[in-house]
Amino acid sequence: MTRTRIVLGAIVTAIAVAIMIGLGFWQLDRLEEKRALIAGYAQAVDQPPIAYPPVPTADPPLYRRSALTCLEVTGWRHQAGANAAGQPGYVHVADCRLGAEGPGAAVEIGWSREPTAGTDWQGGPVEGVIGPDERYRYRLVADEGLAGLERSAPPSLAAIRNNHLAYAVQWFAFAAIALVIFALATRKRRREGA
């Protein structure tokens, strides 16, 4: 009975350790992918402006300069954010209609300490930098504060987290811990069986 338990435990532990090691190597691959992505974004900062993509793309053109014309504001989002000086407060994001049809766009029009400021902005031309957005995948962050708001902090590469090395180390540590626990449990069962 003890031998069967040890064999079964060895099989389960081996499968778990193999999965954890696989996840560790997958995180190392993701680390390299994220480094390449960040390097591409760093190059985008110095590239010439592009036309604002009206349809979300699989590879968003983050950190590129662009411009658009908001024909009509269709909704507002007010989120925690910072101004250009790094002070905390609220950034105000207008969901805009760009044409007769299509998904629209998000425009971060500026920053304030007030949670719902800026809602009197009716739209118009906006120049800025493309940054990430949770609804449209990317948004245009205005160069200047609109509707009496202060300028928001521009999108920053420093905001992109690359924790994949820590995750890889974590998975490898879990695998090592599982092996140690199995070895200690097996040793204990053998002593009890003797």
Results as ranks from 00 to 15, higher is better:
Q122R: 11
G123C: 08
Y41P: 06
P115G: 04
N83D: 15
H92T: 02
S66K: 00
A39N: 05
P48M: 05
E114Q: 15
Q79L: 15
A58M: 10
E127Q: 12
P60C: 08
R65S: 14
S112E: 03
A42I: 05
R113G: 15
R139P: 01
T116K: 13
P56I: 09
T74E: 06
L68F: 05
G75R: 09
E72S: 07
G104C: 07
Y90D: 06
R77H: 11
I130P: 03
P103M: 03
V93W: 00
E72P: 09
Q43K: 14
G104L: 10
R64M: 00
Q47F: 00
I130T: 05
L62R: 06
D95L: 13
G86M: 14
Q122E: 14
R65C: 05
T119I: 09
D59V: 09
E72A: 12
V107I: 01
P115K: 09
L71N: 11
R77D: 13
D46T: 14
H92S: 06
V129T: 15
A94G: 07
G124L: 03
A42H: 03
V129D: 00
D46C: 02
H92L: 04
A39W: 02
T74G: 02
N83V: 08
R64G: 00
E72L: 08
T74Y: 01
V129L: 10
P132G: 11
A58L: 15
D95S: 11
D133M: 02
P61G: 02
P54N: 07
